[in-house]
Nucleic acid binder design. Structure first.
Length: 376
DNA sequence: AATTCGGGGTC
DNA sequence: GACCCAGAATT
């Protein structure tokens, strides 16, 4: 199918897709995930936000830990952002954690601690977009609304043999319309829950990216992609986006009497709100500083790479010691240090903070003493 | 409409 | 490496 018009949903699809997915989910879908088997909007919301752009396997450990610490929306709303970020540390897309916290506070302050019950109302809350709102509304309240995540986009593109660019907004609008049209007017709440889960399960376990298992697919008979014999031709690959840029990143680990100086990163940008050492973008700044203070020894540790969505970071850790009595005192006089945004932390305390993954990895390496430094 | 947000997994 | 993953917010 080509062009900008929404794809026509055939009568066969309109009548057959939904019940096939529902029946298949009940028989062969996933049922044991920790966020299943509940209609508690808080639990469902937490799982949906964690699962945004994140695979189930990655989320599993985080979800249980988070729910133990914050068992309901009131506990989460009463927490500090630092506590939330600490539990989110390593999961990435930290704006999600900030929105999660803000959303909990909004639900408590403006909705009496109860989540809105419609997708439209849910979508007005921080961090809840159209797809997440639909997931919560369908799972918890049986609303007849469709999700449209990466799995569903892939399934739809194949079922419709739709050649349009998945990244194009017009394509997304058309697929929202199609997805909605696949839901019967008389779908029950229980069916909506099974259907929504079934769409996710189908994309995750059957209609996979590289090796779709059309032989066990409940909608294979309705699928134009399968009929073509080459279902992996869809979804069409987007034209290459912007290439990741390389960036040097020189974290300056300042140590004093066993304590580490860490400071909170700005509210915007990479690793927003997390704790990290001062990060220099240019080595010259540090070298000038060191030349002026020959008594301080700086150690250069092996550089390593860390990939983000839009950056190829090349991290060059630097280790610097300052006099032993300063750990209880003021901020070190070092490049990049912002005194009122930082503090000294013991190793164990530091590792309980919200840290960027490479910072956590490096601190752990250092604390465990499994490596020796390259003194210079 | 295009960019900006992490980190980990797969092939 | 390329691509993807239960996307959303911002500009």
């Amino acid at each position: 199918m080509t062009g900008d018009a929404p794809p026509t949903v055939s009568a066969a699809l309109r009548t057959g897709f939904f019940p096939s997915v529902v029946a298949w989910q009940r028989r062969s879908g996933r049922h044991g995930l920790p966020w299943q088997g509940t209609r508690d909007p808080y639990s469902v919301w937490l799982s949906e936000v964690m699962l945004q752009q994140t695979q189930v396997r990655t989320v599993l450990g985080y979800y249980e830990r988070f729910l133990r610490r914050f068992p309901d929306v009131h506990a989460l709303a009463a927490a500090t952002l630092d506590e939330v970020l600490a539990l989110w540390s390593g999961l990435g897309y930290y704006r999600r954690a900030r929105h999660l916290h803000a959303c909990a506070q909004t639900v408590v302050a403006q909705h009496g601690g109860r989540f809105p019950t419609s997708a439209a109302a849910l979508a007005t809350l921080p961090g809840i977009g159209a797809s997440t709102a639909a997931a919560i509304a369908a799972f918890c309240f049986g609303e007849r609304c469709s999700i449209l995540d990466g799995n569903v986009r892939r399934v739809l593109a194949r079922v419709l043999a739709d050649d349009r660019d998945p990244a194009h907004p017009a394509t997304q609008r058309a697929w929202w319309t199609t997805a909605q049209a696949l839901i019967p007017d008389d779908a029950t709440a229980a069916e909506m829950a099974a259907y929504t889960q079934g769409l996710m399960d189908l994309g995750a376990t059957v209609c996979t990216r590289t090796r779709p298992r059309c032989d066990v697919c409940p909608v294979a008979a309705l699928c134009a992609g399968q009929a073509s014999g080459a279902p992996t031709a869809w979804p069409r690959r987007s034209p290459r986006g912007a290439r990741r840029r390389e960036a040097w990143c020189l974290p300056l680990y300042v140590r004093s009497d066993g304590a580490w100086w860490l400071q909170r990163r700005p509210d915007r940008g990479i690793w927003a709100g997390l704790w990290a050492p001062p990060v220099l973008a240019q080595v010259e700044v540090l070298e000038d500083w060191l030349c002026a203070q020959p008594a301080l020894a700086a150690e250069w540790w092996p550089a390593f790479d860390h990939t983000l969505t839009h950056r190829d970071l090349r991290l060059q850790p630097l280790l610097c010691r300052v006099p032993t009595d300063s750990a209880a005192g003021p901020a070190p006089a070092a490049p990049g240090v912002v005194a009122d945004q930082g503090a000294w932390w013991s190793p164990s305390a530091a590792l309980s903070l919200g840290l960027p993954a490479p910072v956590r990895a490096w601190l752990q390496t250092l604390v465990s003493g499994s490596r020796t430094s390259n003194s210079r």
